[in-house]
């Protein structure tokens, strides 16, 4: 993103903490714990851009997507769209912005109401915002279905009569119904077959071209993100650890966490003996995250001082578009170069 361009969406210090208290007694006794799903995220998304958001399960990717669209109440921070702080708006005021900001869901089997026809599912947005009624509504629904590669005659069917890929298309048609500017795609292809994944990804790209959409593309599959994203943000335990253009993320310098994620991409070559960086242990609990840099418990190049910082280190700009949240990231290249042979055996065992 060029610096002079005003971003379409700007996320500023966004936090989403969930309380584990359940019911009256917990609230009275007050030993509730806090899950820090999103813990201070800054991001910018430009118009017409696709920002990929990657990270392992439970790192807060989906929470970030939901919170920035106001589907969850943020604990702290702001989301600016069109100069307006969405987190400050009442739900009635936010309703108008729903026409510009939409969501495509992960699981096409759970994201469509089984009791409504496709026409009602796609047309709901038109009803809610009073965009079209009667004959016009039917025409618009059919037009949307054809836009996403379904047939107009499918409008009267129920979701169970469709395959997973077709359902995901219905979900995309629903998001498109309000003619949005920006769509959060929350792992839109991870529940689909690989062949169908490609179709949906290409559909999303075509729509981006036709309608000038911007995407936040949440995924855990790096090859999918590499294909679709212009820029990538890497998330670990509720924080962004690295952000940059796709080719910058996929080439050095790396954040140590990104390095290990990249090394985990499956390689079809049976004779490949590349280094697979195996992270020790499991992801620490977001209820009680490690001090300092949250990654230090599993980091292959962790220093003593990593745990002593007050907070996660700020992203260090290695180029105008590339930030790495690790002051020691230069060490990772040396380490990678020397350990290529020794970790080869582990990769086959994994």
């Amino acid at each position: 993103m060029s610096a002079d361009e005003e971003p379409l969406i700007e996320i500023d210090g966004l936090k989403k903490h969930y309380s584990t208290d359940e019911g009256l007694l917990d609230r009275i006794l007050g030993d509730a714990e806090t899950v820090k799903a999103v813990d201070g995220v800054d991001l910018e998304i430009a118009e017409g851009e696709t920002l990929g958001l990657v990270g392992e399960s439970g790192c807060g990717k989906s929470s970030l997507g939901r919170t920035m669209l106001g589907l969850e109440e943020p604990t702290e921070g702001s989301v600016y769209y069109d100069g307006e702080d969405l987190t400050e708006l009442s739900s009635a005021e936010l309703r108008d912005y729903r026409k510009d900001l939409q969501f495509v869901f992960q699981n096409p089997f759970a994201s469509l109401n089984p009791r409504l026809t496709v026409s009602d599912i796609v047309g709901e947005a038109l009803d809610v915002h009073g965009l079209a009624a009667g004959e016009e509504r039917a025409e618009r629904v059919e037009e949307l279905l054809e836009t996403v590669g379904l047939q107009a005659s499918h409008a009267s069917r129920y979701p169970h009569e469709f395959s997973g890929g077709q359902r995901q298309r219905i979900g995309i048609a629903r998001a498109l119904a309000v003619d949005p500017e920006f769509i959060v795609c929350d792992e839109p292809v991870s529940a689909l077959d690989v062949s169908v994944q490609a179709q949906i990804l290409n559909l999303l790209e075509d729509l981006q071209e036709d309608f000038g959409l911007s995407y936040l593309f949440i995924a855990h599959d790096l090859s999918v993100v590499e294909h679709i994203a212009d820029r990538i943000a890497v998330m670990y335990l509720g924080e962004i650890v690295e952000v940059g253009k796709t080719e910058e993320i996929f080439s050095p310098p790396y954040h140590p966490y990104t390095r290990s994620l990249l090394s985990a991409i499956p390689e079809p070559d049976p004779l490949w003996e590349g280094d697979r960086i195996i992270l020790e242990g499991t992801v620490p609990s977001p209820i009680n995250p490690p001090s300092g840099c949250k990654f230090h418990t599993r980091c292959p190049i962790a220093h003593d001082e990593c745990s002593e910082w007050d907070e996660h280190p700020d992203l260090e700009e290695v180029s105008s578009t590339h930030g790495i949240g690790c002051p020691f990231h230069e060490e990772i290249q040396d380490e990678v170069g020397s350990s290529a042979d020794s970790t080869g055996a582990e990769s086959t065992a994994d």
């Binding site: 969501f103 869901f105 992960q106 759970a110 994201s111 109401n113 709901e124 947005a125 979900g171 309000v178």
Partner: peptide, 17 residues
Amino acid sequence: ENEYVTAAKALGARDRS
């Protein structure tokens, strides 16, 4: 907790609906 409920919220549907 179903995603279609979140989807309706994302569309801006009112609670009653």
